[in-house]
Design a protein around this nucleic acid. Sequence first.
RNA 1: GGCGACGUAGCCAAGGGGUAAGGCAUGGGACUGCAAAUCCCUGAUCCCCGGUUCAAAUCCGGGCGUCGCCUCCA
Length: 369
Amino acid sequence: KDALALGVKPADIHPRVSENMDEIILMVKTLVEKGHAYELEGDVYFDVRSFGEYGKLSGRDLDDLKSGARVQVDEKKKDPLDFALWKKAKPGGPSWESPWGQGRPGWHIECSAMSMKYMGPTFDIHGGGFDLIFPHHENEIAQSECYTGEMFAKYWLHNGFITVNEEKMSKSLGNFFLVREVLEKFPGPVIRFFLLSTHYRSPLDFSDTKLAEDAKALARLQNTWNRLQEAVPAGEEESLAQMARDTRNRIEEAMDDDFNTALAVAELFAFSREINSALTRGMSEKELLLARKVLKDFAIDILGIVQEDSPALAEDSALTARLMELIIEIRTTARSEKNWPLADRIRDRLKEAGILLEDTPEGPRWKVQ
RNA sequence: GGCGACGUAGCCAAGGGGUAAGGCAUGGGACUGCAAAUCCCUGAUCCCCGGUUCAAAUCCGGGCGUCGCCUCCA
């Protein structure tokens, strides 16, 4: 539900470790057979020295890691960095039958086993937080590539953290909260905008103040789209056409460049300003089509920050629209008679009811919330 | 201690050799009965110090600062 509110598309598969135990065990077994792993009293460890490229993702080499090691938990492992593929069962803990006795998977193997089961030995993109680069993703690469002999993931996208007061948000620090809680204060598109307004690799400090600013900023874009929807073609002007093309190109370029969403959003704002000016002067049919298409493609479909149907149009639209028509008519009469107290009172009361009424040069407009 | 990322206007944030996108805020103006929306104008030499270069915020070296990883859990 929360994902939906943020406009996140549902995943096709949500694999569970407990349902993929056969694949996991087969993978561990094969790694042992290939000489990349060894058993030790019911545990199975991956031999990091057996994978020459170990450290290629995080840019470390084994000797650096060794000399810099902070903790020496070393027991009988061949190398302190060898990590567990399979762990002997602990009393009371969940466990499964395996060639090495009762036990459970180590903490990296399940990701490899399940991703390769559903997507094959090589897939395009592997995501995750920056904190997972080492050791988690490094280990995934080692075990997967030793298992298949092929490249694991082609691209790694590591996102920066959401921080709170500049500190990593985490369970252990207790400074975390849920999307659900944020959604009580800000609509989904605003949260999306907040997340997209900085590059995904950068850390992002969470604050209500920032969200509130973003809500205002996003309203500009949404406004432009709403006006564009209501606009009626006028004239033959075409000056916006070139900018529409340029904007499209620049946004595509930005997105192709490692998903530079912040730049893409900036282009939308620049374009939005031009549209607003053009709207005031009256846009031709051609301009309207092009402008709508750009916003529809990028702001609505790709970035998902602008809503195609403004809330006002979405719910109870027919009845509300008729009532609003009536109210506006009355108020317009009052205004023409310079009955300002009444005109203001209508506007104020509507505001209390959650409806914003604006007198624009093109006539009164209203919107919910 | 080792490895890595980052440090751009009051705040958020792109860019990454040729004199700095965008947003919020501020101040001024246009429009308006007022308000809102919208438009115009308004602000930085890019943490510090050296170096390379015709030219550096952008490259190199050294500082300082912030954050992350290097242990269990995922």
